[in-house]
Design a protein around this nucleic acid. Structure first.
Lengths: 347, 347
DNA sequence: CTGTTAGCGCCTTCAT
DNA sequence: ATGAAGGCGCTAACAG
């Protein structure tokens, strides 16, 4: 590891340190001959500017933190990718933080940027440390995909309700009328939005919602299995399931199969996310795609605008979703009415 | 965002900045009364030390970069988690870098630490920028799970050969003798190790390897499907498949099913990694588990030792793997000999 | 165009 | 136990 400083380069090139600095930062602010000399010295001494000193001087770290709820979720990978691409291109670095589902850790990361370890925070947790610091004490924050009702922060989201409605519309279009919903953890805005979308999809089709068709999950695979177990235990009829996450959809499919039901022949299933599970699923999963790269990218763009002191045009952005029709949905064989399914053994 | 500095705190408390610094860094190097005053001032002014200044002064960033081959791979999530846990506890931060499979980007990250943006680099790519900088120009690097033959760097790995052999031993123990291997991308050390393990597993059982049973893949799902297509096209008999990654195993299973073969009844399948695919698979995948958290943690521990100037006891660590028997393997129905499978339609 | 100079915010001897 | 002072390596006025 080299240790040469700007001073040694200056001496070697026979110029002042200011000239070295300029030759490196704005090459054409310096006479070509001088530039040559400096560059030669830089090469000879294998000089690399000390980034810490530069950033300290400039009062900027050019680093942002992407803080996620739980890093085990592969969902965040593409978000990260979107953030990182934009960040990299703009000369920023991305520090990935894992909140491990603990509010306290969010506080830690907020503290990090207050201490100037980073310039800003892209938040993908639904909470901020409480008591909420007064707005003036909050560092630059952009919220992605989540909602923090208490604070009015710039946000990049999708329209969960419209997205869920699309999924239900698809099912309805296929002739399904007994559609179950595996929801996300329910006090959360995201889960609620998707559930409302489910309800409005039913309403649009003139279908009366049936509380027995609604099962609460937590987005994880196991809760998808459990959801099907519950549905079957209730003895309720259904020809389709809308799951608020792909992982739950896969869990549900596995459980349905274990119970002798075929997908999509007996039951159609739609997921949400278009995550890595969707393509690994057999048949591939029909699902609502979230453009994760784009969401991440947009969030980073917002952050850059904020950090540049420019006031962003829109402080909140809504990214479109897209229904991806694949193999787990097909037309309902049930009568157009609410007639029970052909034959279904109880669990 | 607060802007108070140590100087304002000093003035407020009526002491010198040196005292403030001490009161914060080593509280008992200062008289209790003074400490009180300082702490009160800190609280009143909502002072947080500027981390950039501190680190600049101390010539350390307390940040390490975890650079992965391709961030889209969920495999790295748990590695990150392991790294981050140890790092966090030791007061380090982890910057996640994505090499996007490009050697040039590795160079970029090496450069980052040379510029003192970070103290060290945990490398999970199989390459370093070439031409290789002379060792003296290399920053602190720990290699995890990969191998960089050209350079002699501290490494945390698993014994790929022994691990693969375990998988094959398991299959052999179940009575399988016609075992296919879906390899990883082949010029790479990791893939080669696993293939050697496969071969030695066969050798130990006195089974002659059959080149027709070996298909090259790239660790991804699609190549698992393609591998089965190839195997079937070759018209070769097999009762089991060992795939060098879980993703390939899942792809293979999906393709087998599409061709009317049952898993594990007709064909047993073993994967490698125990990744997120393994549990989502139906039935759950028998696979070789890599303890990713531990691997990450060990790598970070090594890094901390190196950065602390302590010479690590062992510069290379090998983490154990574990065969996880689940639902995709069962005893072979084929004759104990090399007899062809009962009935199998050609593709 | 180039050099001189004054810090950025903090830690750390070195005196007192 | 405390204060004064000197940088860390660099950038950004300000003069020339």
């Amino acid at each position: 590891m080299t240790v040469s400083t700007i001073r040694s380069v200056a001496k070697y090139a026979g110029v002042s340190i200011a000239t070295v600095s300029r030759a490196l930062a704005r090459p054409n602010a310096v006479r070509p001959g001088t530039r040559e000399k400096v560059l030669a010295a830089v090469a000879a001494l294998d000089f690399v500017p000390n980034a810490q000193a530069v950033q300290f001087r400039r009062r900027a770290t050019r680093t942002v933190i992407l803080l996620v709820r739980d890093i085990s979720n592969p969902f965040y990978l593409d978000i990260f990718k979107g953030v990182e691409e934009i960040a990299f291109a703009a000369g920023y670095r991305v520090l990935m933080g894992d909140a491990r589902n603990e509010a306290a850790r969010v506080g830690h990361y907020v503290e990090m940027v207050r201490r100037r370890q980073a310039d800003g925070l892209i938040l993908m947790t639904g909470w901020l440390p409480s008591p909420l610091p007064k707005p003036s004490a909050l560092p630059p924050i952009v919220v992605a995909l989540e909602f923090i009702p208490e604070a009015d922060l710039p946000t990049v989201t999708i329209d969960n309700q419209a997205a869920a409605k699309q999924a239900v519309d698809h099912l309805v279009g296929l002739g399904h009328r007994r559609i179950a919903h595996l929801t996300g953890p329910t006090p959360e805005v995201m889960s609620l939005g998707r559930h409302e979308g489910y309800l409005s999809g039913l309403a649009a089709a003139g279908i009366e919602p049936d509380p027995d068709l609604i099962v609460r999950g937590d987005f994880h695979l196991a809760s998808g299995r459990a959801g099907v177990v519950e549905l079957l235990a209730r003895g309720v009829d259904f020809t389709a399931i809308f799951a608020s996450s792909d992982a739950m959809a896969v869990g549900a499919i596995n459980e349905l199969r274990a119970r002798g039901q075929r997908v999509p022949e007996d039951v159609s299933v739609v997921g949400f996310d278009d995550s890595i599970f969707a393509e690994a699923c057999d048949p591939p999963l029909t699902t609502v795609r979230q453009h994760r790269r784009e969401i991440g990218g947009r969030a980073m763009e917002l952050m850059i605008e904020i950090l540049s002191g420019r006031k962003p045009q829109r402080s909140s952005i809504c990214v479109d979703v897209e229904l991806v029709r694949r193999g787990t949905t097909k037309p309902s064989l049930a009568h157009p009415s609410d007639a029970p399914l052909p034959t279904k053994e109880a669990p």
